[in-house]
Amino acid sequence: MASRQNLSHAFEIQGGDFGKAGCVSLEIKEILRDLGIDPAIVRRTAIAAYEAEMNVVMYADSATVMLRLNPQGIKIALDDKGPGIHDIELAMQEGYSTATDQMREMGFGAGMGLPNIKRNADLFELKSTIGKGTSYKIFIDLGSEEKT
């Protein structure tokens, strides 16, 4: 597992670009899978990343994503430029969504994304500044027991 030590990758997401929505998460998934990481952990990481990526596509202007891997775990730090989230506690509730009809037609906007990130991550930190942007910090433990 030598190749697994201290890997780091940067990605960019363009807001509003539904054509590419999910591509960064699929790339992250492929990187982790190729490293031989447990498929259940790869899947949890991919789901959390995808939910965050879809939110950037739907609500923000752009974002940078850093994927970092060390023997303890997988870290995904996503920082977007965008409107920010007014009430984080409310946004974290299942069912809360400001999605447009167009987003709903694409199968999104059920208000399940943020709670789903929390469910899949071992640590999830969400911070936001109104008018500036939102930052997502997602950590998946590689040392711990399987999370269901």
């Binding site: 999910g22 199968g107 059920a110 399940m112 709670p115 789903n116």
Partner: peptide, 24 residues
């Protein structure tokens, strides 16, 4: 047809039935 639901409740190895035939 709700991607949000599949992401929250879908299990690995399932066959996925949907009427939503977009890239997503």
């Amino acid at each position: 047809d709700l991607m949000s639901d599949l992401l929250a409740f879908g299990q690995p190895g399932i066959l996925l039935l949907t009427g939503l035939a977009n890239t997503q």
